[in-house]
């Protein structure tokens, strides 16, 4: 039982903050990437908290931090990015921020 309590506590700690996710976009730079991605987010009422992007030798990388507290299924959101992936030859992924925090913050 002790382990169980500990695991709940750990989980509560990481859930105390807002549920946030990282949207990563990687691919060849072209017109309209940000517009298309943010359109999907806006349609789902997802607020963007932070954006950073770089372009390195025509290679576009964008990371967005978004608030997904109200989103029940990230999987469904991910599915809505898939058509853009195919249309523009991009790799768009949405994943919970907790993974990045665990790996890069002590």
């Amino acid at each position: 039982m002790i382990t169980k309590t500990a695991s709940l506590k750990f989980y509560e700690v990481i859930r105390m903050a807002k549920r946030r996710a990282v949207v990563s976009v990687i691919g060849k730079d072209q017109v309209g990437i940000i517009a298309k991605v943010t359109n999907v987010l806006a349609d789902n009422n997802v607020n963007v908290l932070d954006i950073s992007q770089t372009i390195l030798q025509d290679f576009f990388t964008m990371m967005m931090l978004v608030d997904v507290s109200e989103i029940e299924s990230l999987e469904k959101l991910q599915e809505q990015f898939n058509p853009i992936n195919e249309e523009m030859g991009l790799k768009i992924n949405i994943q919970l921020e907790d993974l990045f925090k665990a790996m890069h913050r002590v």
Binding site: M63, L65, L99, F100, M103, H104, R105
Partner: peptide
């Protein structure tokens, strides 16, 4: 989390 850290993951 910094951009470079996200990219690393």
């Amino acid at each position: 989390i910094a951009l470079s850290e996200m990219q690393e993951t």
